[in-house]
Computed example of a mutant assay.
Amino acid sequence: MTFTDEYKGDNAVEAHGNTKLHVIHTNNKKQMAITLAQYERHLSLQRHKIIGIDLEYNNDPEATQKPALCQLSIGKSHPVLLFQMSDSERCTVFDNFLADPRYTFAGFSIDGDKTRLERVKLEVANFVDIQKEWRVPEATKPLYSLGDVSGVLIDDYYNNMKKKITDDEHQRWAILPLSRRHIEYAVKDAYAAMAPVADTCVYAEGLQLTNTEWRSMLGCLMIANRGFRAPLLHRLRTADLQESWKLPSTIKFHAPSSGKLTLETEHKNGYGDMEVDYHIDSEDCINITTGWKDFVSQNGFEAGEVAMVFFYKEEDSIKFKIFTI
């Protein structure tokens, strides 16, 4: 028997803060095709076609375990799709979507997912493991969990994500109907798998990054407890590398109207830091002045490089950490 349960409006799933997610839970091939067609229309307009994916398994022994539920997300502005694989007929549209090489599917610790998909003769064409590709540099743990990464880049809420459901509940993904707790957990897993890769990549208006620059930027973002969730991204111009650098007025930073700040960088010339002067002008723009030219020279910045800048306070000092990619 086919079904489609929809969670939206007042019944939407709260992810964190004010973020609410529209959810479609279905085993209906027609509904699956409609939703994936909406995904494809949106993704056709995107430079980086990223889909968050996660799987929950049935309660068979591990050696024969198969997927029970597949969760897909392309961001908070579109429905999260929960496809009940354990109670559905084979869906060619779904199979072809997973196998489409145009898309990047972002998962977390995906080796187990790959094995279980193989058991039902399914393969994800472009499956990327966030845990392996974008681990936190110099982390105290060799590999962070999805909750750890999402807690750093999205919201502290995700730090305890795995505690939101019990071990007994984890055994019941193939038993319908799924509880509201199951639905909420599955939705947040899919959204959290996608958001660190896509939602935190806030590009400056008009800035186009190459795939190499984009991947490098993601690595920089995985620095725990540093800066805003969305750093400034800016392609350096010749004028930016002169005596001073005027940052865009869109960058607001609570600080005295003038003073000193510490610039830090990690660049082709290695790590460097320097204390420089700044002032906030009549247009509310931050101007980095005395010391900026020396900083540029010391680190070998060149026009055309993309600068990614984190702003943060450390004790009584203001720091800008700059990466060029």
Rank of each mutant, 00 (worst) to 15 (best):
M1R: 04
M1W: 03
F3A: 09
T4E: 13
D5H: 15
E6M: 11
H16I: 02
I24Y: 03
Q31I: 05
M32I: 10
A37K: 06
Y39N: 01
I50K: 01
I53K: 01
Y57F: 11
D60Q: 15
E62I: 03
T64D: 14
Q71E: 07
L72A: 05
S73Y: 03
G75R: 04
K76D: 02
S77I: 04
S77A: 14
L81Y: 06
F83D: 05
Q84T: 03
S88D: 04
E89V: 07
A99V: 05
Y103E: 00
A106E: 03
A106D: 04
G112N: 10
E123K: 12
A125Q: 14
I130D: 00
E133C: 09
E133A: 06
V136F: 11
E138N: 11
L143N: 15
V149F: 01
V152M: 14
V152T: 13
N160P: 00
T166E: 02
D168Y: 11
Q171G: 03
I175L: 13
P177K: 15
L178S: 09
R181Y: 01
I183D: 01
A186E: 08
V187T: 09
V187S: 07
A192T: 03
A193K: 01
M194L: 08
A195E: 09
V197W: 00
V197G: 00
T200C: 08
C201Q: 13
Y203Q: 10
A204R: 14
G206A: 11
L209M: 06
T212D: 01
T212K: 06
E213H: 08
W214L: 09
L218V: 00
L221S: 08
L221F: 10
M222R: 13
G227F: 04
G227K: 12
L236I: 12
L236Y: 06
R237Q: 15
D240C: 13
Q242E: 12
S244E: 02
W245C: 11
S249V: 13
H254M: 11
T262D: 05
E264G: 10
E264N: 14
E266Q: 12
M274F: 13
E275L: 14
V276G: 09
S282K: 04
C285G: 05
T290K: 14
D294T: 08
E302L: 14
E302C: 13
V306M: 06
A307I: 08
M308I: 08
V309C: 07
F310R: 13
Y312K: 15
K313A: 12
K313G: 12
K319C: 13
K319G: 05
F320C: 15
F320M: 15
F320S: 14
